[in-house]
Design a protein around this nucleic acid. Structure first.
Length: 271
DNA sequence: ATGGGCACCTGGCTGC
DNA sequence: TGCAGCCAGGTGCCCA
């Protein structure tokens, strides 16, 4: 599911409901997530107050008084705030029960999500340490993208999905950004001109920022903290539109598979 | 260093 | 109806 806009939407949705609350209990119903949830975690976090919620790439960091919960939604995960008494559904894997009477509930059918508790500097954690700049930060600019693409012959779509080079861009927004930049997804990264790098950086920033404004994209599972879907799907130019007319030039959108991931582009608008 | 492929899971859909 | 096969928003790890 979630790329950067969906994770950011989740962050904005949960923070006002959990900040300042105290953790009554962490109830783990299914510890077998991507990595097994440690058995000691509930005892470690109980009693601590929530200080805030941050996002780094597609990870959420729930800051407590003596550490942070590090959470990933994987492909199909979602986090919702609800009254603690709400009956659990299939795939509800843990609850962070708060003294407000609400619970932060994690649901994830495919269990690709994860939960860690960190007491050291989160930036030094192995999962976060090697992450590239945030696409919405100033460090991600045309000069940067031009520099890191120079010796790479991988497809540009794969490159912008590589979290060592830029974070937060997943399969949907990679296709969408490349459409907006007028660049074909299969082009070797090093073949992009400086101008194309500049257009692509601008397109990545614009598509992510706009998707955040619309609450993200819901294709199947994704819901925000309030249970509502994201509304960016209707703004998509190419993703899941194979065979349909391009919204700009009416040429049928092409669908192919690159490295086992579906890719969409307009053969007319993208060079 | 780079790149390719697989692994981890469940569920929904398609077609026989 | 049943079942096999394929696909899905991510990403760490192993191998060449």
């Amino acid at each position: 599911m979630p790329e950067l806009p969906e994770v950011e939407t989740t962050r904005r949705g949960i923070e006002p409901h959990i900040q300042g609350c105290r953790v009554l209990a962490l109830a783990v119903h299914e510890p077998r997530l991507r990595w097994r949830v440690e058995a000691e975690m509930p005892a470690q976090v109980a009693g601590q107050a929530v200080q805030g919620v941050r996002r780094r790439a597609k990870y959420l960091l729930i800051d407590l008084e003596r550490g942070s919960l590090l959470l990933h939604l994987g492909m199909s995960g979602s986090l919702r705030v609800m009254p603690a008494a709400t009956p659990r559904l299939t795939h509800d894997h843990f609850d962070l029960q708060l003294d407000s009477g609400n619970t932060l509930r994690f649901n994830d059918p495919r269990r690709f999500g994860s939960l860690h508790y960190l007491t050291e500097d989160p930036a030094q954690h192995p999962l976060l340490r090697k992450l590239a700049p945030e696409p919405l930060d100033d460090a991600f600019d045309a000069a940067y993208l031009h520099r890191v693409t120079r010796k790479r012959r991988v497809a540009i779509k794969l490159l912008i999905m590589n979290s060592h080079l830029v974070v937060g861009v997943g399969n949907i927004y990679a296709s969408e950004a490349l459409f907006r930049a007028g660049v074909r997804p299969g082009r070797a990264a090093k073949s992009l001109t400086r101008e194309e790098c500049a257009r692509l950086v601008k397109a990545i920033r614009a598509v992510l920022a706009m998707a955040i404004r619309f609450g993200g994209t819901t294709l199947r599972d994704y819901v925000g903290a309030d249970g509502k879907p994201g509304y960016f799907r209707r703004k998509l130019y190419v993703y899941e539109r194979g065979g349909e007319p391009c919204r700009r030039c009416a040429t049928p959108i092409r669908h192919l598979v690159h490295s086992q991931r579906s890719t969409y582009y307009c053969p007319q608008c993208q060079a």
